[in-house]
C-alpha cells in the first residue's frame, strides 16, 4: 500500500445536545472557542488538512452532528464510511454520560461497520474547566464504561481551555487511519461474514 497516497479520514462526532461537539471541533481545527451556544442543525463538517500520523500525511474530515433530536438530519447517511466515531459527553452532566451507550448503538446501526467489535471509538469527557464541585461523572466511572466497551480510549478535555484536545484528536486520527487501512485490506476480499454465521448456527442448534 502506498504511503504517499493522500488519505481522507472520516470522523463522526456524536453526543447529547450542548456537550461541546462543535466547540471541540472548532478548537481542534481552527483553535477558536466561543462561549455562545448555537445548536447545530443537521450536520456539518470541517476539514483538517495535513495531519501527521507517524509518517503519514492525512486529511481529517470531521462531521459534527446535531445533538438535539429536532435538528437531527434526515439526509444521506453521513455515518457511512466513517473511520472513527467520537462520543462526547459533559463531565458535569450525568445524563449526557448515560446517553453514550445509545449514541454508540445508534452509530453502529447507522454506519453498520463490518466489524463492530473492532471499530474505533473514542470517548471525550468535555468541559473539565468547570469547577470541580459541579462535576457529575467521575473519571473512574467514565473509565469503567470505556473499559467495558472494549477499552475505548478516554480523554478528559476542555474545548474552552484547549486542554487535551490535540492529544485526543491525535489518537482519533491514528485509530481512524488504522481502521481505514483495515477496511481497505478486508474489502479486497469477500465477506468474512459467512464464518460468523456458521459459528452462530453452531451455537444454537
Amino acid at each position: 500500500m502506498s504511503s504517499r497516497k493522500k488519505t481522507m479520514l472520516k470522523v463522526i462526532i456524536l453526543g447529547d445536545s450542548g456537550v461541546g461537539k462543535t466547540s471541540l471541533m472548532q478548537q481542534y481545527v481552527s483553535k477558536k472557542f466561543s462561549n455562545q451556544y448555537k445548536a447545530t442543525i443537521g450536520a456539518d463538517f470541517l476539514t483538517k488538512q495535513d495531519v501527521r500520523v507517524d509518517d503519514r500525511n492525512v486529511t481529517m474530515q470531521l462531521w459534527d452532528t446535531a445533538g438535539q433530536e429536532r435538528f437531527q438530519s434526515l439526509g444521506v447517511a453521513f455515518y457511512r464510511g466513517a473511520d472513527c466515531c467520537v462520543l462526547v459527553y459533559d463531565v458535569n452532566n450525568a445524563k449526557s454520560f448515560e446517553a453514550l451507550d445509545s449514541w454508540r448503538d445508534e452509530f453502529l446501526i447507522q454506519a453498520s461497520p463490518r466489524d463492530p467489535e473492532s471499530f474505533p471509538f473514542v470517548v471525550l469527557g468535555n468541559k473539565i474547566d468547570v469547577e470541580e464541585s459541579k462535576r457529575a461523572v467521575s473519571q473512574k466511572r467514565a473509565l469503567a464504561f470505556c473499559q467495558a466497551k472494549g477499552n475505548i480510549p478516554y480523554f478528559e478535555t476542555s474545548a474552552k481551555e484547549a486542554i487535551n484536545v490535540d492529544q485526543a484528536f491525535e489518537v482519533i486520527a491514528r485509530n481512524a487511519l488504522a481502521q481505514e487501512e483495515s477496511e481497505e485490506y478486508s474489502s479486497d476480499f469477500s465477506d468474512p461474514i459467512n464464518i460468523h454465521l456458521d459459528n452462530d448456527r453452531g451455537g444454537c442448534c
Partner: peptide, 8 residues
C-alpha cells in the same frame, strides 16, 4: 451478515 450489530 453482522450479528454483532443485533445488540445495538
Amino acid at each position: 451478515i453482522n450479528p454483532q450489530l443485533v445488540g445495538p
